[in-house]
Amino acid sequence: MRLTLRIWRQRGPEDRGAMATYELDGIAPEMSFLEMLDTLNEELADRGEEPVAFDHDCREGICGACGVVIDGQAHGPEPTTTCQLHMRHFSDGDTIDVEPWRAAAFPVVKDLVVDRSAFDRIIGAGGYVTAPTGSAPEAHSTPVPKDAADTAFEHAECIGCGACVAACPNGSAMLFTSAKVNHLNSLPQGAPERETRVLDMVDQMDTEGFGGCTLAGECATACPKDIPLPSIAAMNREYLRAVRKG
């Protein structure tokens, strides 16, 4: 398969950057999108050009590192991560646009690599439980109701890839933050910090320069882990409850 790639190239954080066009031949449909980029990079290296920088790690859809915007969609046309997107979803002769996540809170480091440490600081503001560590607790010492466990697990699936922010017209991190808040706030282990968690994480989210939710719904559509849009309403509810409790 023969492709025309238009890829964002930016030498560093201060560089202006621009879209660059590459012709690439010999792409097999069973290749993943990242393998296609690897093939391009080998060709670029052979020609003595700088390879395209992109984030990747596990390549099995669970680490959340490999986020790029493909043809205007976070992680491309399939509801999965970029590493799990295969070239069979494209056709011979296609032109594919590849861009980094665009958000003020995710500055571009180089080419397609962005700095997502704003997410780490949101987690640091309350995305944890204060618990004794060292030895694993007895499994039945804290009973968890089935529905609470299901809610927590649904939200714990978030891999922090940032597709929600990249897809949102407001660059909002509400879906990410709500996944973390709802995960821990629905469990008894998270109960002691239920109020401070949501207040502090939302404060940090605002401080990082993410936008707000206008219910466009793009985040949940882009999410490779199916975090549902009503999670945001659930976080709003937790926030208002925490404010009422002081």
């Binding site: 646009d97 809170a105 909002s172």
Partner: peptide, 13 residues
């Protein structure tokens, strides 16, 4: 805030 949070538009819109 929303507009400031997305200062660079996508080339492919």
């Amino acid at each position: 805030r929303d507009l400031a949070a997305r200062p660079v538009k996508y080339a492919h819109r």
